[in-house]
Amino acid sequence: MVKSVIYSIKSPYRQSMDIVGYTFGDGENPEKSCCIIGALRGTEIQQMAICAQLVDALKRLETKGCIAKNKSVTVIPCANYYSMNIGKRLWTMDNTDINRMFPGYDSGETTQRIADGLFKGIKDYVYGIQMTSFYLEGEFLPHAKIMEIEDPKVTGKGIGENLADFGLPYGLIRKPRPYDTATLNYNWQIWGCRAFSLFTTYTERIGAKSAQTAANAVLRFLIANGILNHSLHKGSHTRVLNEDEIRHVHTRGAGIIKKRVSVGDEVGEGDLLCEIMHPLEGNIIDRIISPIDGTVFFSYDKQLVMERTDIFKIIPFGL
């Protein structure tokens, strides 16, 4: 294992923030096979913890000679501990989001420089995996996602092909929206790297089981792509689908949520998903029912909801 500083930033009142990468695999000038990145935001504690688990696992596997010849893997658990250490999600000083700054700019503002420094260090990998959090607070079924980008450098493989390598129950293909174009994964893909986002159940809390699921998914991916020689149970069968096949269920009224189903539950069309209670008077003001037969894939986990909140996402049963 080689520990190196990928990028470092100076602050006037704190120690410099060193973004540290851990690289596994030896040999002369090995292929840059896979880069795994954890937290870009200060709240992505689960994402950092998954990477920490991976560093620990890869350390042991490397001693046993399990990293394939001429391959290498780099893990960057946390690219924003300045924010993490003070309990902020976005950048400490100006509330910008590092994951909206790629490919970065070396003479730009601080987070543009961080994105640039980081990207220069990681852009040449064959595969990229980012542990990601979602802007809506909620629970997901663990899944991998890739953006559908028409790029000559990424053809040769079907866009959804590697999604099954993680052995997670779902693999999603996303059509990028304009705001995606400044994310790490979009730019990774533009650069010719096959980049995936792994979504785990939680963000700020560490779910031991889901962290283990994610860490195993990464190891399985490394095995499937000949980067790691090791054996691990196969994981789940992966159902690959387009993100827009998922049905979103919105609230109509606002108030306190009383949920009747959880993530992973199978529901039938017409089943009660949740009730909305009047926040001051306690009567039920709305009952939200499932529009389809399917599996609850996402569930909003705040107590209060406003109108039009995406409270559930349901994956229709496969044909």
Binding site: I256, P279, L280, M306, E307
Partner: peptide, 9 residues
């Protein structure tokens, strides 16, 4: 649009 507690945006 309705916010959770009583108020509208």
């Amino acid at each position: 649009a309705a916010l959770p507690v009583t108020e509208n945006l």
